[in-house]
Design a protein around this nucleic acid. Structure first.
Length: 497
RNA sequence: GGUCACGUGGCCGAGUGGUUAGGCAGAGGUCUGCAAAACCUUUUACAGCGGUUCAAAUCCGCUCGUGACCUCCA
């Protein structure tokens, strides 16, 4: 394993901490996945893409990562009030579908989008409804431990009692007294002893379509509980990384901690990582705000705010240009710039993959250039090691691309940097573009062979100084989105930006 | 109201005590039959006002502005 001083920003401490896994070389990472009652929007996609890059980098460093990302398919209520309806059940009722039909439809869509964005599938993708038994068991234990109580077939977590022994609110920087003061509304609490309590298990009303048998009667598990159960089941009572959007810090993650600690007395997570929000014209993209842009609207350019389509990789590139803890704003200018940058990187990838080292006894090694390249490579790692700062790493990668292009067009001879640096330069570039950043070519790969044939015609025309034909060929290529480039010692081509 | 962020050049977006972020756009150059691409060079910055310091865009204070969370949301 390469020695690296990876640092991660831990929401718990609000500082960057050295990343030291509990059981190296193994790393356990849990990320809160989507509640599949609707299409995921771009804001959701950003978070999952950020964690995909984190997952990829950890693997690149040699860690054996078990990446668990759940699918929530029950328990997520429309509101925290007792009468709040389950989101899945509501959608099922509205569209006249089986709840599992709703789940399947949106889970399929989610997986399709993840694939389009080139996000790797997680190691385990557990669903809440597949872990009802475990959720009942955890609830029983929490009651036994005295941190939950049963009322009319429902079970609630007793936040005030928990807070006598532990600190509820430490993740989101909240003090329970303020929470209590802030929730002093005159509406009936219903069954809860206190408004800040939350449901572990809810009794199913007569018409409720999602219901399971439990020691407290027929009902369904509360939101929050599935993440505690499933993270513990697959990663252990304490694991390394828990991630999610920062909107989940409170109450979701706060409740998760309380449940896990209330269950076994152990802190569930060593490092909490939270991604920042995606905004549209400065306003957070959210389902409730109604400003959500769906992935296919971006990819096809059909959203009213978009001037043209932007591909999945363009969006991924834009994500890479922003640090995960900063807000990211969507705009046409930003996306257009990202598209150009992306094409540049991919054209570089093609070049890097076919570039060959040329030994030359008469050319001395230029140590200054070698040092520059070594420094750039270090900067890529320095960026990623600094809390996964992809913006810094990507800028360094573009500097590396300049060197690659310089070698490609003959301004630097391969022998001037030596075989070792030459290979290291190409390997680093290819590895980071494909494996770590997860950027891939979005064009048809078989075009490569076709281009070779066509370029022979072009070369011939040039040789014959038939410039009329040359210009005509260029124009034809351009129609197909390809530009021909006359190099000093040959002919090459690239995708038009 | 409470808590917490942020305000960087035409646009996006890093950095955070002294040394070029990067991309897009603009300008000049090299290369080229002409181009394109690539490469090289280059213009426009750190909201405002004070303070600390040899030195601040970077730390501190105030002012103005924007946003997030406190309710379901990645």
């Amino acid at each position: 394993m390469i020695p690296h001083q990876l640092k991660v920003f831990n929401t718990l401490s609000r500082t960057k901490e050295p990343f030291e896994p509990l059981h190296p070389p193994f790393v356990g990472m849990y990320v809160c996945g989507p509640t599949v009652y609707n299409y995921v929007h771009l804001g959701n996609c950003r978070t999952f893409t950020c964690f995909d890059i984190i997952y990829r980098y950890l693997k690149h460093l040699g860690y054996q990562v078990r990446y668990v990302r759940n699918i929530t398919d029950v328990g997520h209520l429309e509101s925290d009030a007792d009468e709040g309806e389950d989101k899945i059940a509501k959608k099922a009722r509205l569209e006249n579908l089986e709840p599992m039909e709703v789940v399947q439809r949106y889970a399929n869509h989610f997986h399709l989008v993840m694939e389009q964005l080139n996000n790797l599938p997680p190691s385990i993708e557990p669903q809440a409804t597949g872990h009802i038994v475990e959720q009942i068991e955890m609830t029983k234990k929490i009651i036994e431990n005295g941190f939950a109580y049963q009322v009319n077939g429902s079970v609630y977590f007793d936040v005030r009692k928990y807070n006598l022994h532990y600190q509820y609110g430490k993740l989101s920087g909240r003090v329970i007294e303020e929470l209590i003061a802030g929730t002093r509304d005159l509406e009936g609490q219903g069954e809860k002893r206190n408004p800040e309590d939350f449901a572990l298990w809810k009794k199913a009303a007569p018409g409720h379509i999602m219901r399971w048998q439990s020691p407290w009667g027929e009902g369904f598990p509360g939101w929050h509980l599935e993440c505690s159960v499933m993270s513990q089941k697959y990663l252990g009572q304490t694991f390394d990384i828990h991630g999610g959007g920062m909107d989940l810090k409170f109450p979701h993650h706060e409740c998760e901690i309380a449940q896990s600690v209330g269950y076994c007395g152990k802190e569930p997570v060593k490092y909490w990582l939270h991604t920042n929000m995606l905004t549209v014209n400065g306003v957070r993209m959210s389902k409730s705000a109604g400003n959500g842009i769906l992935p296919h609207e971006l990819f096809t350019g059909t959203h009213p705010l978009l001037e043209r389509p932007y591909s999945p990789m363009t969006f991924r590139y834009a994500i890479l240009q922003t640090h995960y803890r900063s807000t990211m704003d969507i705009s046409n200018d930003a996306l257009k710039a990202a598209h150009k940058g992306y094409v540049r990187v991919i054209n570089g990838l093609r070049i890097a993959k076919k570039m060959q080292y040329l030994p030359d006894e008469n050319t001395p090694v230029q140590s200054k250039i070698v040092e520059e390249i070594q420094q750039i490579i270090q900067n890529i790692y320095k960026g990623m090691d600094d809390d996964f700062n992809t913006a810094v790493a990507l800028s360094a990668l573009l500097n590396l691309l300049k060197k690659i292009n310089s070698v490609h067009n003959g301004q630097i001879k391969p022998a001037e940097i030596g075989r070792e640096t030459f290979q290291q330069m190409l390997n680093t570039y290819i590895t980071f573009v494909e494996e770590v950043f997860g950027l891939r070519q979005e064009f048809r790969p078989d075009i490569e062979q076709v281009m070779e044939v066509l370029l022979n015609v072009y070369r011939q025309a040039k040789q014959n100084k038939d410039f009329g034909m040359v210009d005509k060929l260029r124009a034809e290529f351009r129609k197909l989105g390809v530009v021909v480039k006359d190099m000093k010692d040959g002919v090459d081509w690239a995708y038009e930006e």
